[in-house]
Amino acid sequence: MSTAPPRSDPRSWSRTAEDLAGGWGQRQLWGHLGWQDIKQRYRRSVLGPIWITISMAVTAIALGILYAGLFGNDLAVQLPYILVGFIVWGFISGCILEGADVFIANEGLIKHLPSPLSVHVYRLVWRQTLLFAHNMIVYLIMLVIFPQPLHWTVVYVVPAVALLMVNGVWVALLLGIITTRFRDLNPITQSIVQLMFFLTPIVWIYEDFLNSANPTIAERARLAELNPFLHFVEIVRRPLLGQDQQLRYWVVVLAITVIGWLVTLFVVRRYRSRVSYWV
């Protein structure tokens, strides 16, 4: 639905807010489409979306066994660590990779139906959230096989995932607008995301290196703190593995959320009305 009250300057804060709020108002639309995207992907398969869960389980088990052997860790430690890291990374990289393509992929819709740009972004983040939920089934099964020392801190996972989603929205909006204008950024984004997977402690256990007997390794491991993705992974992974919370991860994530949104709001205000010209 495109209720369009009198429009003055296309580059105003009110139009920016209108886009974000208007898109939010169309929850029924993007909620339905997000679900449809998931079902669609497994449309003619017998198991359907359960395949998401299965492939996550296969990856986590295979990598868990491999890296437990390589690093000489106990499988009961390595596998849960890799699994949770992978699930979080799946959400982050999904938001970034699909975010870079969000308006280009929806060119037909943008050119034919006037709707707030944010609709496409909400749909994307919702779809990623549904994938995340499917993957969490593997986590629950894992809890049975490798029980974790969970305590009440596990509830922190709720605000942590909420923060992931809030950040997913700005990342997709910002990247979506920029890559629609500069198409070269799409492949650049892909390679950076792939690189960041290795630089983020997902398969390697951060604290093991931090507490390494070799001071050079410990020193170098500290550099990982500069990686913003580490903080996002940690705020979700720590409560799920029963590890104690560390304030600094939350502070960094909150700072990124605020700064990211500020930058995105300026970009949306300035370039929102140009996207339909660029796609």
Partner: peptide, 29 residues
């Protein structure tokens, strides 16, 4: 309202139903 004017103004009040392409938004699967 899909294109906002690069110069000048366009003010639209009302719920718009654009029917440009019957196929858009249709999913074959």
């Amino acid at each position: 309202g899909i294109y906002e004017p690069t110069r000048g103004v366009a003010e639209i009040s009302g719920r718009v139903a654009p029917i440009f392409d019957l196929g858009v938004g249709m999913d074959p699967e």
